[in-house]
Structure formats: structure tokens, C-alpha cells
């Protein structure tokens, strides 16, 4: 059984069909980079994996559990699937510590004393141990994004979803976030990441998935697929991003 299985997923917003039968499987430990033009459905596909978007056809499953089944307890499922957004979405009224410990405390019942230690440990992983008592608006964009990653890690997820998490950052802050991702990759985390950083995808991802018009147009091992695209669409896309 694969960790994630999407089968013929169809997603519409009104008349606008955004996913036209997307099928994809992800194995434990894999790192999948998802690339494609704006509007091709990358974010939508990612959001279907943790049930943030209801789907109109096909099926999505995680560890064998149907995400799109109304009887599935999404709260339980989401404890195992972390997601980090382009716009960080930290809770502005809570300190870094409280941002991180909120879900472990409320959802998993972690005791306050342990929670602080948990926050410290995930913050060390993202290199921000000294910011534990800061508030989000006292941090740079790169730091906020690393806190958002730490917040997800604190739930000890099996799978992490990343949606263009460096796109809102100033160029000089991108590196620190990518470095954090690389460390997570080394620790064996399963990741699906939407990214425009082609060089990063080539270096870190096992597999590249190219989306086009709501479909998976082409996929394969990162270096091969990016080095020798099989479809003219991917070739066009790559030459547009690389130049």
C-alpha cells in the first residue's frame, strides 16, 4: 500500500474544472517535487491530499484511509499530514511557542511542561531555538516560515505538504528555508512540495511531477525528467523558468 494514492481525481470550482483526472502515488520516504505553470492545479492537488478541498470525482487515500469519504475523521488524518503554506499563516496573537504547542496540547493532550520542551526541540531543528518567546510579527519572513515548518513538525507527521513555501520570501531568505527542507529530507520525511526552485527540485527530489491543464502531464526521476523532458510542454515550461 502506498502512503498516498490519488485516483482519477476530479476537482471543479463551478464550471471551472481544475483537476481533470489526476492519478499519483507516493511511497513512504519519497520526496516529490510538483512543478507547473500558474493555474495548472498544483495547490489544488496538494490541498486535496489533506482534505482541505472536497473533490467531485475519483478518490484520494492516505495510509489506506479514504480522505474524500464523509465518514473519515479528517481531524485524525490531519494529525499525520502537515502542510505549510506560501503565506506562513502563523497565528499572530500567539507567541512562537504557543503557535507550535497549540495543536499538540489541544489535539493530542500534551501536558504544558512537555509542550515547551517539544517546541524547543522542533525549533532547534529549524535553527530558531532563541525565538521561542517572540511573536510572529517580530520575525523575518524566512523565520516565520521556519516557525510554520516547526509548527507542523511538532505534530510528528508522516507526510509533509509544502505549497510554494519560498515564493513570498525575499531572495536572500529563500536559502535558509530550503536548507531546513533539505535537512528534513535527510531525516527521511516524506514530502510533496510545490516549488518553482528547479535547482532545488533537481537536487533534493526523488521524483518530479509536472502538472499542466489540471493533469499530470509528465513525471519521472528528478534529474532525468528535468534534464530530458519527454513532452514539449515541460520543455517550454523549463526554458521559461530557467531563463
Amino acid at each position: 500500500m502506498s502512503l498516498v494514492e490519488l485516483k482519477d481525481v476530479v476537482k471543479r470550482y463551478g464550471q471551472n474544472q481544475v483537476l481533470n483526472g489526476v492519478s499519483l502515488t507516493v511511497e513512504k520516504g519519497e520526496i516529490i517535487a510538483i512543478i507547473g505553470r500558474s493555474g495548472s492545479g498544483k495547490s489544488t492537488m496538494l490541498r486535496c491530499v489533506n482534505g482541505l478541498e472536497p473533490i467531485q470525482g475519483g478518490s484520494v487515500s492516505f495510509e489506506g484511509t479514504k480522505v474524500n469519504d464523509p465518514n473519515t475523521d479528517l481531524r485524525k488524518l490531519r494529525q499525520h499530514v502537515g502542510i505549510v503554506f506560501q503565506s506562513f499563516n502563523l497565528f499572530p496573537h500567539l507567541s512562537v511557542e504557543k503557535n507550535i504547542t497549540l495543536a499538540p496540547k489541544v489535539v493530542k493532550g500534551v501536558a504544558p511542561a512537555e509542550a515547551r520542551a517539544l517546541a524547543e526541540s522542533v525549533l532547534r531543528k529549524v535553527g530558531l531555538a532563541e525565538k521561542i518567546d517572540a511573536y510572529p510579527d517580530q520575525l523575518s519572513g524566512g523565520q516565520q516560515q521556519r516557525v510554520a515548518i516547526a509548527r507542523s513538525l511538532a505534530m510528528q507527521p508522516t507526510l509533509m505538504l509544502f505549497d510554494e513555501i519560498t515564493s513570498a520570501l525575499d531572495p536572500e531568505l529563500v536559502g535558509e528555508v530550503l536548507k531546513t527542507l533539505e535537512e528534513m529530507a535527510r531525516d527521511g520525511m516524506t514530502m510533496m512540495l510545490v516549488t518553482h526552485e528547479i535547482g532545488f527540485a533537481r537536487r533534493v527530489a526523488n521524483r518530479v511531477v509536472f502538472m499542466h491543464h489540471g493533469k499530470i502531464w509528465e513525471q519521472g526521476p528528478a534529474a532525468e525528467t528535468l534534464g530530458k523532458p519527454a513532452t514539449p510542454e515541460l520543455e517550454t515550461f523549463l526554458s521559461a523558468v530557467l531563463h
Binding site: G82, F85, N89, L90, F91, A103, V106, M155
Partner: peptide, 10 residues
């Protein structure tokens, strides 16, 4: 903000 909470299992 709702989404961030929901995604954490709240």
C-alpha cells in the same frame, strides 16, 4: 487562519 487550524487537526 481557519485553514491553518484545520490542517493541524483542530
Amino acid at each position: 487562519q481557519w485553514e491553518a487550524g484545520a490542517s493541524l487537526g483542530l
